[in-house]
């Protein structure tokens, strides 16, 4: 294919990615170093109310935004260097906590709280997703052929459902006097309040994630199981390998590339976890890195969006993604050079 034809074919896609992915990355990078805010001025206002004999007057200094001729707010943009990063990282509060030797205090700062949760969340769900996915794939592979269609249908439901809705459907089983909580209370004869307990919410969020992603792992592993070499399996049996050994030495090595693939996709997606926080309304207890950026971007009570701090937190989130991506990129690079 000539370069010109190639260019004509890919141009629309490339242009869209440049405008809506590459360009925003540049603006986010720039915005993280500057702050745009309305110009405010302080005015002395004297307010008088009618009183007996003489008026009661009070003077106070009010801060109000400066308006231009058209009635719009005047804004200024300043380059502030690393200020937004310092605020997001909470360096000042961190310094205090360290000086006092109160290590746990660091986890009260939003960013570190989010990082702690996102990392635990990602690393704990990873083995569970792979284990459950593999177990379902093997169980389905053993099941009768006529059952496979319906079983795959039901298994796909948690994966296909809107993430926020999926999280909500589990939340309604547990929050308040949800039936599962009620059953647990009856069984353990104690009072359980899931919605007010950070750890309980954390476990529920992980449970939701495993429930949501395991079908994906299952479908991939199931496809891989169809291509296991039957001859190798038979030779393993002749050599006296039992079921467990066959699984360990024949099937799992065969699935290894797929396991790595699922693991990498899961790492990327779990690191971007966001819908869990919305679905479980866990912002008071547990937040994720992506939710932190989202929260900074939503207007606060005064209607202002903290664009600069959001950009800084977005850039910090990206650092993590880049670290996660390096092994994947190295592998693709090796494959490409191996082939050509």
């Amino acid at each position: 294919m000539k370069f010109r034809t190639f260019a004509a074919f890919v141009a629309p896609s490339i242009v869209m990615m440049l405008i809506f992915i590459a360009f925003p990355l540049v603006t986010v990078f720039l915005n993280s170093f500057r702050i745009t805010q309305p110009v405010v001025e302080q005015v002395e206002v004297e307010t008088c109310t009618a009183g007996f004999l003489e008026q009661t007057c009070t003077t106070e200094i009010k801060t109000q935004p400066v308006l231009d001729a058209a009635g719009n707010q005047v804004t200024t943009t300043e380059w502030v260097g690393w200020l937004s990063y310092e605020r997001v990282l909470g360096l000042a509060a961190m310094g205090e906590a360290l000086a006092e030797g109160a290590w746990a205090g660091i986890l009260n700062i939003d960013f570190w709280k989010a990082l702690r949760f996102t990392l635990t969340f990602t690393l704990i769900t990873l083995p569970l997703v792979i284990g459950l996915g593999l177990a379902i794939a093997i169980a389905v592979n053993n099941a009768a052929r006529s059952l496979k269609g319906p079983v795959i249908f039901v298994s796909l439901l948690p994966f296909i459902i809107t993430p926020v809705i999926g999280a909500l459907s589990i939340r309604w089983l547990f929050y308040g006097d949800g039936i599962v909580t009620a059953l647990l209370e009856q069984w353990l004869a104690t009072d359980i309040s899931v919605a007010a307990n950070g750890w309980a919410i954390e476990i529920l969020m992980m449970f939701y994630r495993v429930w949501h992603v395991a079908p994906f792992a299952f479908v991939i592993f199931y496809a891989g199981l169809q291509t296991v070499n039957q001859d190798t399996l038979e030779s393993a049996i002749i050599d006296g390998a039992n079921r467990w050994e066959r699984l360990k030495y024949v099937i799992v090595p065969h699935l290894m590339p797929l396991i790595i693939f699922v693991a990498l996709i899961h790492l990327m997606d779990a690191y971007r976890a966001f819908e869990e926080v919305v679905g479980f309304s866990s912002q008071a207890y547990r937040i994720t890195l992506q939710w932190l950026t989202y929260d900074l971007l939503t207007p606060d009570d005064a209607g202002n969006r903290a664009i600069s701090r959001a950009s800084a937190s977005a850039m910090l989130t990206m650092v993590g993604i880049v670290i996660l991506l390096i092994p994947l990129l190295r592998r693709t690079w090796r494959d490409h050079h191996g082939k050509s």
């Binding site: 809506f20 990355l25 603006t27 690191y271 950026t293 989202y294 971007l297 959001a310 977005a314 993604i321």
Partner: peptide, 8 residues
Amino acid sequence: PHSVLVAG
């Protein structure tokens, strides 16, 4: 992460 892009 999509929030990075939306911030832009």
